[in-house]
């Protein structure tokens, strides 16, 4: 009887089904799989039966109770936004930092603070390196490196491959900014920790990004290349509804692409993902619809609470209340994604 390796199982359940979220959890440090132009590629067959690739994949079995017990020390909260301490609005106090981000620069400000305060010794972030076409994970250890990674990418980027890089480099307290799928993978790493690498401690801070969907980076690159050329793009923005466009900022100014044109580029995995707000992160950050320059901020864990308090105390972050009407709207959107996933 043929033994089913983890890689075989991953291939059958995820890759061959077109359900890869391009999170990057399976490819870091593995010689059998790699990422290539936005896709996860199997190079050779691996026979390991209890491998990390399958276990850490966000698209394979996920036990929300076990993860909640690990992160929140309580059973899974099935409320629309997951377990949370509070929802507020925020923006980076430094206008230069705020200008870097998609919303209010909250994520960049928090990561800078976390590094400065020693909560983390490194940050795994997503960046399009100069001259490259595809976003990827980077290990940032300086203010400049963190700032360089600011801004939304809207694509699956395999950036968790850089977590392995950070671990191999010996970093002991790694902060990661990721999409909800990546947050799930990071928590699976800590939960199962197959190689006993003390991942619960070493993945020290997880910042989730709100996400309704992400583009396949290969398809997105193929879409953009003939229209803009690979290197001229400076930034992407999705203005709040009802704009329904993607703003592409190039050297020649901003161009608006209707989102409907882009929908076919959305990753298949996003259609089955039930998590809009990164329910298992320490804090989650997203747009604040109707308030340009501000973010919605969900504080979930005690670490998250401490980080936000420090950020406010040290003047890094300005916060404000998040109105109930907006909260209802956010919950509705989150439930809608859940519903979509359950029907997929």
């Amino acid at each position: 009887m043929e033994r089913v390796s983890s890689q075989d199982a991953l291939k059958r359940a995820v890759l061959d089904e077109g359900l890869c979220a391009a999170c990057g959890a399976c490819v870091g440090g593995c010689p059998y799989m790699t990422t290539f132009r936005g896709k996860t590629v199997v190079l050779d067959r691996c026979t390991v039966e209890h491998g990390r690739c399958y276990r850490y994949c966000p698209m394979t079995e996920f036990d929300p109770d076990a993860v909640s017990a690990l992160v929140f020390e309580r059973p899974h909260d099935t409320e629309a936004l997951g377990h949370l301490d509070r929802v507020i609005s925020s923006q980076a106090a430094d206008p230069a930092v705020a200008a870097l981000g998609q919303g209010g620069g909250t994520v960049t400000a928090l990561m800078l603070l976390a590094l400065e305060e020693g909560i983390i010794d490194s940050a795994v972030l997503t960046r399009i390196l100069p001259g490259e076409e595809y976003a990827r994970g980077v290990v940032a250890t300086t203010t400049e490196e963190i700032q360089a990674a600011a801004g939304s990418k809207f694509v699956g980027s395999h950036s968790l491959a850089a977590v392995r890089q950070a671990l191999d480099a010996g970093h002991r307290r790694i902060g990661v900014v990721g999409l909800p799928c990546q947050v799930r993978s990071l928590r699976k790493m800590a939960l199962y920790d197959l190689k006993q690498e003390n991942l619960k401690e070493r993945i020290a801070l997880v910042v989730g990004l709100f996400c309704n969907w992400a583009f396949s980076s290969r398809d997105f690159a193929a879409f953009l290349a003939p229209r803009f050329g690979p290197t001229s793009i400076k930034r992407f923005q999705i203005p709040p509804p009802p704009a329904n466009v993607l703003e592409v900022e190039t050297d020649d100014g901003a161009t608006r692409v209707p989102l409907d044109e882009l929908r076919p580029l959305i990753q298949e995995s996003c259609r089955t993902c039930p998590d809009m707000t990164g329910e298992f992160a320490d804090v989650s950050v997203g747009m604040y619809e109707g308030m340009p320059g501000w973010n919605t901020l969900i504080v979930r864990t005690s670490l998250g609470t401490r980080l936000i308090e420090d950020a406010v105390r040290t003047g890094r972050l300005r916060t404000d209340a998040f109105p109930d009407s907006n909260l209802e709207h956010l919950k509705k959107a989150a439930l809608q994604k859940r519903k979509r996933a359950s029907q997929a």
Partner: peptide, 12 residues
């Protein structure tokens, strides 16, 4: 033989 290698050099 660990995950992340699985005797990559000799096996493959």
């Amino acid at each position: 033989e660990e995950c992340g290698c699985n005797r990559f050099c000799t096996r493959v």
